[in-house]
């Protein structure tokens, strides 16, 4: 057997995603608002589903509701809907009890642009 270890120190440039990545590192949600139809995507999509590539960056509230969730040894993740976004997102769920569906984006523990949702204090929760 040839045992061989390879380390790969990537330097990924965010490119057109730069506003999203920079905001996310601070726990803020920057989405893209289509100039043609007004749809807002978060996570941002370079080209809107209407076909237009013209868009402005807009700040969203970062609030989201959990539509589906999965848990197990791979972690806890959800398919969520961010307030003001047309598309959905897959996020990590931190500390969500099973009855809680409202959450908000938090800053990731390291510099990587991870989408992490923490539960919001909800008036409807007993």
């Amino acid at each position: 057997m040839i045992s061989y270890e390879l380390a790969l120190p990537y330097s990924l440039e965010p490119g057109w995603l730069a506003p999203y990545v920079e905001a996310l590192q601070k726990g803020r949600a920057m989405g893209r608002s289509c100039s043609k139809c007004g749809s807002v995507s978060f996570p941002p999509q370079r080209r809107c589903q209407c076909g237009s590539g013209e868009a402005q960056w807009v700040r969203l509230s970062g609030k989201a509701s959990v539509l589906l969730r999965t848990h197990g040894s791979d972690g806890t993740f959800g398919l969520v809907q961010f307030e003001g976004a047309t598309n959905k997102a897959v996020t990590r769920l931190e500390g969500f009890a099973s009855e809680i569906t409202d959450g908000h984006l938090i800053a990731p523990p390291s510099d990587v642009p991870a989408l992490i949702l923490a539960p919001s204090k909800s008036r409807s929760t007993p």
Binding site: L12, T70, D74, G75, T91, R92, P113, L115
Partner: peptide, 20 residues
């Protein structure tokens, strides 16, 4: 850049799709 940095796994994504 998005799902990957979030730490999702193939199994978790397949699970969400199957649930729907």
């Amino acid at each position: 850049w998005t799902d990957g940095m979030t730490g999702t796994s193939a199994t978790a994504l397949y699970a969400l799709s199957y649930q729907a």
